[in-house]
Write a protein that binds this DNA or RNA. Sequence first.
DNA 1: TAGGTGATCTTG
DNA 2: AAGATCACCTAT
Length: 203
Amino acid sequence: MINNVENKIEMFWYQNSDVAFIAKQLLGKIICTNISGKFTKSLIVETEAYSGTNDKACHANNQKLTKRNKVMYRPGGIAYIYLCYGIHHLFNIVTNVEGKADAVLIRAVQPLEGIDTMCNRRNFTKNNYRLTAGPGLLTKSLGINLSHYGASLIGNIIWIEKKENIKSDQIISTTRIGVDYAGDDSLKPWRYFIKENKWVSRN
DNA sequence: TAGGTGATCTTG
DNA sequence: AAGATCACCTAT
């Protein structure tokens, strides 16, 4: 069964006020997409936390509300997708309760099923470690784009499945990538990845 | 290490 | 209205 309802993470799980905690918990979870008639399944290996309160790297810092970021204020459990550098569609999971604009950026995944589909979408002739190692690369591989803006993660297009947690001694945390402009907040250790996993975007 | 790409935000 | 900036990636 492709869409295993019993295994799907429920809405309330995402409505947690500790976005860094959720970013860590998402490591090792399974992300599934069923887009354009193609199924993919992959393991989350790298994430970053962004907090709407007290984090200048976050699009919704200081209660800033724009057309782009407005879904971040909705209850957790939906997708926040935006275009970066004119080319890349970046996939974030909205967390926390309504009005608290937190999100977790998915930075890298390890392909499990539908690898041919992923290669086709990337114009790769065969699988390699760069297929999904980067936030813009994994969305292209999985078929995620702006049309999924605000989509529920409890639905049957994009969803996350439960798995046992990665042990804390297997998680590396570093500063986030590409947020130097955020001053002090660029020093927050809110990037997480699975230790020695070959599919992370960089070490 | 430089350049492409386009939405968003600021007036640098 | 124009210009800078940007949670990136690829190819020199």
